[in-house]
């Protein structure tokens, strides 16, 4: 059960990132599919247009299409669902992540015009937006990779050498235009050890040998307690 202070932190972070964007309370696969709808909508808009979603999902794991094509996926997903963590599938890259109350999702879709967008560039606008939001809360995360973190990548947001947010992106061509969506999951509160355990249980049933360490992750609430003020 989240404390009032933890829920307030979610609200303050969302407001800091975008005061005019309401936090959507979502559930299940539809919450993930809404990102696909968002990028398709934005691709039909003039170059330079963008749309932002801020959302929280109910308890679930979210994995990638390659993982969902593995032979053991139905059995592994069924086991996870029976444990209270249904598995949903997203279109962007990376590996399996967790969604739950206390993890704030930010999705930014951008219509980028006729030219290709390199993968690294697809992260820039969202990272800039998130860093500006964190700065309003007097938090200065750095961008980088964290060995031992689940769904690790070069565009994590990190504090004290621990990952507090992961990112992934998807780039498409529609109507002679490149559009992209970049998504971040920020762990605001909750048990990162429990998060890793749910992901590990699922991936072990898929025969995926990823090794994650609890010390590679932290919640924003943890970090604020470590660095008051």
């Amino acid at each position: 059960m989240a404390s009032p202070g933890e829920r307030d932190l979610v609200r303050r972070l969302a407001q800091a990132i975008s005061p005019e964007t309401a936090v959507e309370q979502c559930a299940g696969q539809q919450a993930v599919d809404d990102d696909d709808d968002l990028i398709d909508q934005v691709a039909a808009l003039p170059s330079g247009s963008s749309r932002l979603r801020i959302w929280e999902n109910q308890n679930c794991l979210v994995t990638t299409r390659p993982v969902a094509r593995r032979k053991a996926f139905p059995e592994a997903a069924d086991f996870s669902a029976r444990s209270g963590w249904p598995v949903h599938v997203r279109s962007s890259g990376g590996s399996t992540v967790i969604h739950r109350p206390g993890i704030l999702n930010i999705s930014l879709a951008v219509a980028a015009g006729a030219k290709p967008v390199p993968p690294n560039a697809s992260y820039e606008a969202l990272i800039t937006l998130l860093q500006a939001g964190f700065r309003k809360l007097h938090i200065e995360p750095f961008v980088g990779s964290i060995t031992g973190a689940y769904c690790d990548g070069n565009y994590n947001l990190c504090l004290n050498n621990r990952k507090i947010a992961g990112t992934a992106s998807r780039i498409i061509r529609r109507h002679d235009q490149t559009a992209y969506i970049c998504h971040a999951s920020i762990t605001v509160y909750g048990s990162t050890g429990s998060d890793i355990s749910h992901i590990r249980n699922f991936e072990q049933r898929l025969g995926l040998p990823h090794a994650y360490t609890t010390s590679s992750h932290a919640t924003l609430a943890d970090m604020l307690d470590l660095n008051p003020g």
Binding site: T64, R65, S91, G93, P119, Y155, A168, S169, R170, I171
Partner: peptide, 30 residues
């Protein structure tokens, strides 16, 4: 990363048939 249709399956022009993964970014192949 993924073929979205099986070998031998009928597809329509323009549909996404496969995905390419570059680090954590996915691209479509139509």
């Amino acid at each position: 990363a993924t073929w979205l249709y099986d070998d031998g399956e009928a597809v329509q022009a323009g549909v996404t048939v496969a995905e390419i993964m570059v680090e954590k970014t996915s691209f479509e192949i139509s």
